[in-house]
Design a protein around this nucleic acid. Structure first.
Lengths: 142, 142
DNA sequence: GAATAATAATCAGTACACTGACGATCAGTA
DNA sequence: TACTGATCGTCAGTGTACTGATTATTATTC
């Protein structure tokens, strides 16, 4: 029994870390009405060519199509993105970022970077790199 | 601009890790109808004296009273816990684990430990310890 | 003893985050 | 052409996870 105490279990440590990370993000972007997922989708969209569909974008942002759809609904309502049906394949709903969305993305990127700093604040420079490297290794296996 | 790519940001790495951790937990405990939070509350309750209230237990499991309340509702419905009003302080709802809850907790603890192993599977023994230590350091600061 | 503050719990509202089911569309084959 | 299978998207359902408001009760202060 390596983990008789649940609070030392990796699952619990990761959940806590996630909780803190979200809180830091929300605090850093308090003025703007945006969430971590919305930012991730916006970033993924900004990096993608202009004819991405929801399934592909969801994969890039690492979430299921169902969650992506509802989050994209909110983003569409805010005018950050637009959806149109691909005439070549009527199943696909092609996404593209609007001028407003792109401007908003650039405007908050500084705040988001600040949030990332806050998350890692308790760690030294070396420790930060180690943590990120280990998480990356863990994630890429799945 | 250290983090021009959102997928390398600590916030995103942690979210992914959390996603994977939950998935591993759910797969390892597939047969039993339980979630990570429910297990955490059960474990916290098993470690606590028999007159804990919801606020204290929520703190120990690291979640807000609102989430704790709704999760405890489900646990009460399953017969794992019981709630009774403290006659000494009628605001408090004293929690205690039932025989069924305690038995269930013991029964799934092996599966949960297995899930923790799966989460860290891609990492070496040293890396696992490093990751847990860094997460602990990060979390304890908040 | 009455006003005030603090505490425990609940409730409403919003946003993830997943599964499983469903309908629509497209591609391949018989 | 009809059948089959794969793919894209949506919907329903469940369960976190938070904030902010509200209620009930207890403790404190004047």
């Amino acid at each position: 029994m390596t983990h008789s105490d649940f609070s030392a279990m990796p699952g619990h440590l990761i959940r806590r870390a996630h909780q803190i990370a979200v809180a830091q993000f929300m605090e850093a972007t308090r003025a703007h009405d945006v969430t971590p997922l919305q930012y991730a989708l916006l970033a993924a969209l900004a990096q993608s060519p202009d004819d991405v569909d929801q399934v592909t974008l969801a994969q890039r942002a690492a979430l299921d199509t169902s969650t992506a759809a509802s989050t994209l609904d909110r983003m569409e309502a805010k005018g950050w993105i637009e959806r149109s049906i691909d005439p070549e394949d009527r199943r696909r709903r092609v996404l593209h970022i609007t001028r407003a969305g792109s401007g908003f993305f650039k405007r908050i990127s500084g705040d988001v970077a600040g949030a990332q700093e806050s998350i890692l604040a308790p760690l030294s420079k070396t420790e930060r790199e180690t943590l990120c490297a280990l998480l990356q290794k863990m994630n890429s296996a799945a």
